[in-house]
């Protein structure tokens, strides 16, 4: 499965976004705050664990995490660049 599609499915299922279909998430839409999915800081902690669990990718630098967590595209780019082959 494409990394973006997998990320969307994981976010919807694991963060319990019951009223959102993975296919409806725009690759460039903000994941956090108003105007996007509306995720919050507790979701961010869970998302960091989910990235490591599903892709083996850790985010150690919180400042970097802020940019990585901006959208599905930024997440996918980070995963593709850092995933263990």
């Amino acid at each position: 499965m494409d990394v973006r599609q997998k990320l969307k499915r994981i976010i919807v299922e694991e963060l319990n976004l019951e009223d959102i279909h993975p296919g409806d998430i725009d690759n460039n839409a903000p994941l956090f705050g108003e105007g996007g999915l509306g995720l919050d800081s507790l979701d961010a902690v869970e998302l960091a664990v989910l990235l490591e669990k599903h892709f083996g990718v850790a985010i150690k630098d919180m400042a970097k995490g802020r940019e990585v967590f901006r959208s599905i595209d930024t997440l996918a780019n980070y995963v593709e660049a850092n995933a263990v082959a």
């Binding site: 963060l15 507790l42 979701d43 902690v45 869970e46 664990v49 490591e52 669990k53």
Partner: peptide, 13 residues
Amino acid sequence: NDGDALASPLLFS
């Protein structure tokens, strides 16, 4: 299943 480092924060809370 996943080890203590990957235990779910949402489940814990």
